[in-house]
Simulated assay, not measured.
Amino acid sequence: MTNVAAPYRRPVWDALAESTELTVLLLENQARFRRGGTNRGREWAEYDAPTYEVAELPTARVSRGESSYYTALRVGFLARYRPDAVLLAGWESPAYWQALIWCKLRGVRTVGFYESTLSTQRHRRGPIAATRRRFFKLLDRVVVPGIAARDAVLAMGVDATRIDVGFNAVDVEGIAERAQAARTVSPRSPDSAGHRFLYVGQLIARKNVRGLIEAFARIASPDDSLTIAGLGDQENALHTDAERLNVAQRIQFTGHIPYSEIAGLFARHNTLTLASTEEVWGLVANEALAAGLHVVISRTAGVAASVADMPGVHIVDTSVESLAGGMQASKDAWNGPISDPPILAMTPRSFATVFEQALRVSDRSISADGTKY
C-alpha cells in the first residue's frame, strides 16, 4: 500500500514481482491526482504494470501543504486480496491504520517502510510522535532505505533485530546506459568550456533553490551555467532572484522534465546540486551519480550519509557560503563523468530482496551491505 505510483519506485516493484504475486494498492486515484494542481508530472498518475496488479483503493482525501491524508471508504478492503503479507509505505493516513488493524486481527504479516530521518521528523515528542512510535512497534518488521532512516526508527524504540536496512534504489543501470548513449549521440562541443550545474525537483521553499541560485552567482565563471528543472510556487521568485543577481542569462528554467528524459538531461550536465533544508532522501542524487555526475548535497538530506564516501560527492550545509564552497570544489575536481560509479551496485533488485526477506522471514535483519546482524 502506498499513496501514489512514483515512477522511481516501479523498478523495485518490477523486481519484487519476479518472485512474488504482487498487488500494489494506491490510495490516490488518477482522476483526483490530475485535478489536484500538483508539482508532479503526469507520469505519476499514468502507470502500466504488466508484471503485477495495480488497484486504486476508494478513499477520502484531506490535503495540507505538501501532505495528503487518506481514509479508506470500505471496511475490510484487504480481504479480497487474501494477502500473506502487507507492506505499508506510510503511517500518517488513517488508511494505513485501517490496514494494520485488519492484518493484526487476522494474523497477516505486516512490514512498514520508513524513509524519514531524525532531521526531517517534525514531531519528536507529543501525541503525534507517540502515535508514530505505536504504529511502528506494532509492525512485524520495518524496512528503511539507509542508515539515517535506521537511526530514526531506532529512536522510536524499535528493536534493531526488527529493522531491515537497504539502500534506496532507482533504475541505476538503465539511467547509466541512457546517459552514456546520450553522450555518444551528442558529445559536448569543445568550445563549451563552462561548468554546467543542474537542479531537478520541485520549486518550493524547503528545496532551497533560492540559496542555490545565490551560491551559483558567487562562484560562476562567465561560461558556467545552471539549469533548473521543475515546477512549484517559487518559480516567479526564482526568476526575480536570477535577475537581481545578474545571472539570468546563465540560468535556464526548463519546467517539468518527464522521467523518461531525465538521463539525457543528466548527460548534458556536470554537477547536480541538492540544497534542501529538509529532504527525506533525495533520489535524484542516486540518479545523477548513476549518470556519472558529481553531486553537491546538503547534509540534511537522507541520502547524504549513505553516499558520503562515494567519488564525486560533496556534502555541504544549507548556507549560501557552504553551498558555494561545495559547488566550487566540484567544479575544480571535475575531470569528466565518473566511470563505473559505486551507486550502480545499488539496484532495484537488491532493494527488492531486502523487502522480500522482511516480508517472508522473521529471524534476521539485513544491513546496508547485505550482511546479517
Rank of each mutant, 00 (worst) to 15 (best):
residue 141 R to M: 11
residue 108 V to P: 08
residue 80 R to M: 05
residue 101 I to H: 13
residue 27 L to W: 06
residue 114 Y to C: 13
residue 54 V to A: 08
residue 120 T to N: 10
residue 38 T to C: 07
residue 76 G to A: 08
residue 31 A to Y: 12
residue 128 I to Y: 09
residue 103 C to Q: 03
residue 112 G to E: 11
residue 54 V to W: 10
residue 133 R to H: 13
residue 62 V to I: 15
residue 101 I to S: 12
residue 67 S to L: 09
residue 23 T to M: 05
residue 148 A to I: 01
residue 90 G to Y: 06
residue 102 W to L: 07
residue 40 R to T: 09
residue 56 E to R: 05
residue 29 N to S: 06
residue 126 G to W: 04
residue 112 G to V: 00
residue 132 R to T: 11
residue 23 T to R: 02
residue 130 A to G: 06
residue 91 W to C: 02
residue 26 L to H: 14
residue 109 R to E: 05
residue 54 V to E: 10
residue 137 K to T: 15
residue 49 A to H: 08
residue 33 F to W: 12
residue 122 R to P: 03
residue 12 V to P: 00
residue 147 I to H: 06
residue 42 R to Y: 10
residue 110 T to M: 13
residue 69 Y to I: 09
residue 124 R to T: 10
residue 70 Y to D: 04
residue 102 W to Y: 15
residue 125 R to G: 11
residue 105 L to M: 14
residue 90 G to K: 08
residue 107 G to T: 00
residue 141 R to Q: 15
residue 99 A to I: 09
residue 60 A to F: 02
residue 134 R to Y: 15
residue 51 T to K: 08
residue 68 S to P: 04
residue 124 R to I: 09
residue 113 F to M: 10
residue 93 S to N: 05
residue 117 T to C: 04
residue 112 G to Y: 11
residue 61 R to N: 10
residue 135 F to Q: 07
residue 122 R to S: 10
residue 132 R to Y: 07
residue 32 R to V: 02
residue 35 R to C: 07
residue 85 A to K: 10
residue 92 E to T: 04
residue 41 G to C: 08
residue 74 R to M: 06
residue 14 D to R: 12
residue 105 L to E: 09
residue 118 L to W: 03
residue 136 F to N: 01
residue 50 P to I: 11
residue 37 G to N: 12
residue 139 L to K: 01
residue 123 H to N: 14
residue 67 S to A: 15
residue 120 T to A: 13
residue 125 R to K: 13
residue 31 A to R: 15
residue 124 R to D: 01
residue 129 A to R: 10
residue 127 P to T: 10
residue 69 Y to E: 04
residue 98 Q to D: 12
residue 33 F to S: 07
residue 122 R to Q: 13
residue 105 L to H: 05
residue 92 E to S: 13
residue 112 G to A: 14
residue 68 S to F: 12
residue 72 A to I: 04
residue 63 S to L: 02
residue 47 Y to D: 09
residue 85 A to R: 12
residue 14 D to H: 11
residue 30 Q to N: 06
residue 29 N to V: 02
residue 14 D to K: 12
residue 16 L to P: 07
residue 100 L to C: 08
residue 44 W to Y: 15
residue 73 L to C: 04
residue 98 Q to H: 11
residue 116 S to L: 02
residue 21 E to M: 05
residue 59 T to A: 12
residue 117 T to P: 00
residue 16 L to Y: 09
residue 104 K to E: 14
residue 13 W to C: 06
residue 19 S to A: 13
residue 91 W to F: 14
residue 139 L to R: 01
residue 129 A to F: 01
residue 105 L to K: 12
residue 140 D to M: 03
residue 48 D to A: 04
residue 60 A to H: 03
